[in-house]
Write a protein that binds this DNA or RNA. Structure first.
Lengths: 164, 164
DNA sequence: TGTGAAACTCTTGGTGC
DNA sequence: GCACCAAGAGTTTCACA
């Protein structure tokens, strides 16, 4: 994982449909070399998948809410119970009282209520606190470090001269 | 947006590196027709981008936290202030008291503390409540509806035939 | 590990149904 | 709106440095 790898990741996060030729040019490598690096990043599990980002509203999932799930029992091995609810996009075990935080997307607030009912049905769940999102400022890929684009010749010369 | 479109979206969410030929076969269409549908979905903004999903730990962002940001002023037009902090992956305006919920990924809890300091520096911010995630059950693409195609022969199929 | 070129796929437009 | 087909582009491999 060197700096070029991080640049490749940042470029792919922005647009994974680019050609390896374009990718290579952006980081100063040939298409073949860029391809080989990306292939390794996939193999190592650094790049877990290539996916598409879909507009929730277009799939009739315009309502976003975060729900804090309180429980009386240990929830650490209950992943499947949450995964069984398709409207739940994320589920995290959090510090504090035995609790889980879930991110939910539904078509309407009525359907949100329905999700809450299904959460209560999970064994050990003692309560929920739903927080509805009014506006999403942004949701973005995680920062891969400074991906200095184009002709960003790093002054200061960290790059070692290639001697042979 | 018919059922075939939803199937295409679900397939692309799973693996956007598939060929249009494979995509078409999965939904019972020719490669050209599948391509045309995906092209339109992109044009309509239903598919917003094609990206890669990166392992946060590999980018040294192993600590995940949700932070509730309380404020004394209206925050609805402060998106840039939050976007300026690279560790913030998501920022949402939520119902209730004037507040924002942000999702933060840092390398260590010390860096998380540093992010909190920068949040306090934003004009109008009066407090923060951070919740650290102990374990993530799952994070997945939003459900595009039942994606099981026609004769959903999930036989040999996930790995693209690599013949040569 | 990277380059350059060759072999092979896929994408992507055009035509007809 | 879809199937079929052809040309061009991109991917992927391999010998060599």
């Amino acid at each position: 994982m060197d700096d070029i790898d991080r640049q490749l990741i940042a470029l792919l996060q922005q647009d994974a449909t680019q050609s390896y030729a374009a990718l290579g040019k952006a980081v100063g490598l040939s298409a073949g070399a860029a391809h080989e690096r990306v292939r390794k990043l996939r193999g190592q599990g650094v790049i877990r998948a290539t996916t598409v980002d879909v507009d929730p509203a277009a799939l009739d999932r315009g309502v976003l809410a975060f729900v804090l799930v309180d429980s009386t029992a240990w929830m650490g091995d209950r992943a499947e119970d949450f995964a069984a609810v398709p409207e739940i996009q994320e589920a995290h075990v959090i510090a504090g009282s035995a609790a889980v935080l879930v991110k939910v997307r539904t078509s309407t607030t009525e359907r949100l209520q329905d999700v809450l009912r299904r959460l209560y049905a999970i064994d050990g769940v003692s309560g929920t606190q739903a927080t509805v999102v009014l506006e999403t400022f942004f949701e973005r890929p995680l920062d891969a470090g400074q991906a200095l684009p184009l002709g960003s010749a790093r002054l200061g010369g960290v790059t070692p001269a290639r001697r042979r």
